[in-house]
Simulated scan of single mutants.
Amino acid sequence: MSTHSEKIHLQASVPQNLFGKRLDQALAEMFPDYSRSRLKEWILSDCVTINNHVVNVPREKMMGEETIEINATIEVQVQHEGQKIKLDIVYEDDDILVINKPANLVVHPGAGNNSGTILNALINHAPQIANVPRAGIVHRLDKDTTGLMVVAKTIIAQSKLVEQLQAREVSREYEAIVYGTMVAGGTVDAPIGRHPTKRINMAVRESGKPAVTHYRVKEKFRAHTYIRLKLESGRTHQIRVHMSHIRFPIVGDPNYGGRPRPPKAANEEFIETLRAFRRQALHAVQLELVHPVSGDWMSWHAPLPADFVHLLSIIRGDKVINGNGEI
């Protein structure tokens, strides 16, 4: 038995007979399947919109006929089954395992992904891990982000790893290719919360949770930059949101990157490679932590995946011939 987050989407028009009622009272009558405390929590967590505007005040008065929309998550207990899905295991002992996650693989079952996930693969590989909350998964990578993840095989190991993550003692470094040519590295210190209108997205918001991302330039190109990043916090979509926020979105990012933007006079191979790269060019390259049982400092490195390497080689080869010669 384990828990997972399930997305909830509710939408309805406020009946006229609820005129003058408070928002929390109206929601309790409109959505009786959910407790008043849960509905109030959703209001306070920016999960409720009225006519497409987030409202986080439970006492807001209703006029009638407003369109109410709720986009939230709830923890659901489910019995997951193991599935024979290949795992690229970088390290394993009695307490933890470290995997190199491929692209196009969801970490945890959820709405629309009830099977075929890393969690199912973990239960198949180590059946006892089903007794650990979330099958030992203590941090996630997005579906199309590749690279290193640590998983706890026991409850004790999970507790210790969660403590390290909360204390920011786990070192996680990433590599990415972004649009635009950076002058130098830097730090993005900007809080992240749920996007006010695009509910599956995150955004930099004053009301969000603190988030800090450090980045440095590895290579500069004509219209792109190859960078190394280090997280201080671990918010949902953090690197993707922060890079988009400073106007250097990650190449291929379907949510925050926009359309492919090849440089002027780029050759056909360059243009087609960019168009064909349909995931964020983001890879968790290095992971370092204190072993939760032995106390040893441990470090792992995952080489760049083949599609990332190919994209980088094409960008490195981007040159333009003009009247003044080769640039």
Rank of each mutant, 00 (worst) to 15 (best):
I8E: 13
H80I: 07
V138R: 11
I314G: 04
R275A: 04
G325D: 04
P249D: 13
E272W: 07
L312R: 12
P102M: 04
S244G: 03
P263T: 06
L44C: 13
T3L: 14
I85K: 03
S35N: 07
T236I: 08
K21F: 15
T49K: 03
K218T: 10
E169F: 01
L97R: 02
D253N: 07
Q158W: 09
I239A: 00
H53S: 13
E66N: 06
D95H: 15
P262M: 11
V293D: 04
N267T: 01
Y174G: 08
G185R: 02
P260E: 05
A103E: 09
A28E: 12
F270Y: 15
S244K: 04
R279C: 00
D307E: 05
M149W: 02
D307T: 00
P210W: 00
A130P: 01
P127N: 07
N71M: 03
P254H: 06
V107L: 10
I327K: 10
D296G: 14
Q83N: 10
E173I: 03
A111K: 10
K21M: 15
V106R: 01
H139L: 02
T67Y: 01
L289M: 13
A152F: 05
T49N: 04
L39V: 04
K153M: 11
L304P: 03
S244V: 00
N131R: 12
R168C: 01
I315T: 03
L282N: 01
Y226C: 00
M202T: 04
H224P: 02
N71G: 05
E163K: 09
V14E: 03
T187C: 10
A203Y: 02
E81F: 11
E60H: 15
A126G: 06
A103P: 02
L27H: 04
N120F: 01
E92K: 08
G257R: 09
N52Q: 14
P109T: 00
F31W: 08
N17Y: 14
I89C: 09
D88V: 09
I271K: 13
R235G: 07
G82C: 09
A306N: 10
K84H: 15
V151C: 07
K40V: 02
I177L: 11
V293I: 15
V78Y: 10
A130I: 12
A103K: 14
H125I: 06
R168S: 07
P191E: 06
V290L: 14
H9D: 11
P32G: 02
P263D: 02
K61C: 05
L311E: 09
V251E: 09
R36D: 13
I70T: 05
R134T: 09
R278A: 14
Q158D: 06
M30Y: 04
K86Q: 12
R228M: 10
E29T: 08
A190N: 07
H9G: 03
A135L: 08
Y34S: 10
V320C: 05
E163R: 06
V90M: 06
D24S: 10
H53W: 05
P127V: 11
S233N: 13
Q83E: 15
I246K: 02
E66F: 07
V188T: 06
I315P: 02
R235T: 06
R247A: 13
S207E: 12
V293M: 14
M149I: 04
S233W: 08
W297E: 15
H214F: 12
I227Q: 03
I43W: 04
H301M: 04
Q79M: 11
E66L: 06
I227E: 01
S5W: 15
I74P: 08
K84Q: 15
